[in-house]
């Protein structure tokens, strides 16, 4: 028996909204440590990795580890029926073929809605991701990151992220011209959430397909800050810290030939 209760259905909804454009079917692996999910897009350019630890739930029970294979679009249909502050309970039997989602309206205890989603058998590759030291880490407000990517995507299909000791620059170049946004490292005293934190041992510049970067900034509603971890010629690790877990992407760079 698996049963997990989230006080805010919106947390799970935001997670699923963030993966809907690139990932069709995903396995949500439930164990006594919580729920985790890892999925790679068909083109093998982006990998999403998510973990919601047991502390993320107001109650959690998982007698035996199980994988819940779900179609993201179907799951969203159900999650979108909920109000943001509904309490969500997810339930599955050990050898069942359904995930039950129950929504309780915190402002109207007389209303309870219940949905059953058919589970899929998803043959998913699990990747072994090597431990990596990153030589450049930029941490910035996720809304700022989202705005930069949205603005620059209009100018080109590819965006370069250039991290140096004194700042980070995002650049796009395309048919209509070019554009860049530079952020200097700063610390807004008393406003930690707005600071631009830059830790660079060695300057790094990596280029990415802007379509995939756009996907990584859809998770902005999940966390106020995002960190971009880079090292020459390897995938960028983009991570949002959740209250009890994380939501992260690995994105393969464009490499000059």
């Amino acid at each position: 028996m698996f049963e997990a209760k989230l006080n805010e259905a919106s947390v799970f909804k935001k997670i699923v909204e963030s993966v809907k454009d690139g990932f069709k079917n995903c396995n949500f692996d439930c164990s006594e440590e919580g729920i985790s999910m890892e999925s790679m897009d068909d083109a093998h350019i982006a990998l999403v990795s998510m973990k919601l630890g047991v502390e993320a739930f107001s109650s959690y029970r998982c007698d035996r580890s199980i994988s819940l294979g779900l179609n993201i679009e179907s799951l969203l249909k159900v999650l979108r029926t909920a109000n943001n502050n509904d309490v969500l309970t997810m339930r599955a039997e050990d050898d069942g073929d359904l995930l039950t989602l129950v929504f309780e309206d915190s402002s109207n205890p007389d209303r309870i809605s219940e949905y059953n989603l058919k589970l899929l058998n998803i043959d998913q590759e699990h990747m072994s991701i090597p431990e990596q030291e990153y030589t450049a880490t930029v941490t910035l407000p996720s809304s700022e990151y989202q705005r930069i990517i949205r603005d620059l995507t209009q100018l080109g299909d590819s965006i370069t992220i250039d991290a140096a000791k004194d700042g980070v620059r995002f650049t796009a170049e395309g048919d209509i011209g070019s554009g860049s946004v530079s952020l200097k490292a700063n610390t807004n005293v008393g406003e930690d959430e707005k600071s631009i934190d830059i830790a660079v041992e060695e300057p790094v510049a990596l280029g990415f397909n802007s379509k995939y970067l756009t996907q990584t900034c859809k998770a902005a509603p999940l966390a106020p800050r995002v960190s971009l971890n880079m090292c020459k010629r390897i995938p960028i690790f983009i991570s949002y810290k959740l209250q009890a877990g994380h939501f992260s992407f690995f994105l393969a760079p464009q490499i000059s030939e």
Binding site: A43, I45, S128, P130, S158
Partner: peptide, 14 residues
């Protein structure tokens, strides 16, 4: 000219 790399160049399947 740059080319798109694949995650499979960096990660291995388990």
């Amino acid at each position: 000219k740059s080319a798109q790399s694949s995650l499979l160049n960096f990660f291995s399947k388990t």
